[in-house]
Design a protein around this nucleic acid. Sequence first.
DNA 1: TAGGCCATCTGGTCCT
DNA 2: AGGACCAGATGGCCTA
Length: 171
Amino acid sequence: MKTKARSTRRKLEIDLEDEESPAQQTSSEDDNDKCYVYKEKNKGKSQESAKSRRRRQTPPDKEHSVRRLESNERERQRMHKLNNAFQALREVIPHVRAEKKLSKIETLTLAKNYINTLTATILNMSPGAQDTDTGGVGKFYQHYQQQHGEEDNDEHLQKYSTQIHSFRQGS
DNA sequence: TAGGCCATCTGGTCCT
DNA sequence: AGGACCAGATGGCCTA
């Protein structure tokens, strides 16, 4: 875990402990000052961001600190889930430098390219595509029949094909 | 050492 | 009302 993040979390926890034992309240003002660090650092910048203007104007009370810790934890869990999803995506994307972990942006970019490639491949297998071995019936259609049997599935097949085409056009 | 990438904190906003 | 989501800010780690 990151040092700064850990120390910040510890600070919040210490604040709470301090509130529960008033005799030990020593550095709360100093701690509160740290809440305004962003604002101070951004002073004088021509393009002060809206986010930095949103920093707390009043010191956090105990109830606020408790809610903050809880929502921080939820946010961590959410980001962990997001990262797990990224990892799952990495594992299904073929890429050259397998020894090097893909960054998030690389993962998304390669995934998009991979999907486009697979879509193009499927389209080439569609019933309309040329296939001399099967007298004009595409491999895609053959595969579809293997999966779905010989029953009349024209409507379903047409729907599937339309979805792929519209997806392709949208990409 | 600069720059890229990342985890975390945070406050605002959206959604249920 | 409370949780989920979003995006800015920050600092640590790593690599070229």
